[in-house]
Amino acid sequence: MPQNQVQAPVPGGGIKQKILFVSGKGGVGKSLVAAAVARREAEAGRRVLLVEIGDLSYFKDLFHLERVGHSPVRVPGQGFDLAIWNGESCLREYVLHYLKLRRLYHVFFENRVIRALINIAPGLNEIAILGKITSGIRKVGPPLDYDLIIVDCYATGHALALLGAPRGLMEAVKIGPMGAQSREIDSVLRDPDLTAFWIVTLLEEMPVAETLEFYQRLQEEFGIQSEVIVNKYLQLPISERELETIAEGDAQGLGEFARYLGAVAERQGRFLKALEKAGAPLRKIPLIFTTETDCLIREAEEALRTT
């Protein structure tokens, strides 16, 4: 948990960089949680980089930014920086950094054989992305001047494939720079002092089923202990017992609403139990009745701070 730990001073000054991956089923609130924790950490005085993976930036529209690209940009009013990384952009940067010669670099990327290879070579994209994310800690490539890197990661299935890539390549190519890098990346991911994982979920059947599966596989296959963030938790205005009374007493609307709330409460309780039984550390973020980004982030941040 990066937020509760005092940042350890590193010999020679500076602060040890940390990484937080935020994943979970599609649509559960990964991006909002990632942005909220980014803001909270930034407010605590840390230099934070929020990273999206892929080609299409979600935060660009959300924060009404003109441009989001590979190089970090400051998000106005939020206090953290934002970047979007994909296999190609990470590989480009890496190549440029190591080949130095710009001319060679063009030859490299304009070449059709190379393009085809990059497109299809198993694991190359994943290694490029994870390589970039862990580059600050591993002290390779261009400097990455942040205390915390928060990754708004893929949804569960693809996240597992991404995280499994270094190990896969390590086994496929034992020697050479590729094997060595994969090993390094893999060990950063598994080091709980360097990397943390949050799984965001809703208290509903399918997200919880995915969360339990993901949580277990992180533990078994990676030795990673993750935390679960329960999102859109519906906070009841009154106790369940009072709700029941209203549900029984009124047939003209309020009762029906009370019955709905009662059913939601029952469901939430059931899925919370299932998560607790798995032993996952839990935090809750309530359902926030607004669609305004700033308000959403602020309230989610508040909830993360207090639970």
């Binding site: 190519v173 050479g176 094997g179």
Partner: peptide, 25 residues
């Protein structure tokens, strides 16, 4: 078999990934 450009590009790929990876590929 291939042109100078591709040769150079592949050489650099090899520098980055190592010969073992290229060979498997």
């Amino acid at each position: 078999l291939i042109g100078r450009g591709t040769r150079m590009a592949l050489k650099s790929l090899e520098v980055l990934t190592g010969g073992a990876f290229i060979e498997e590929l």
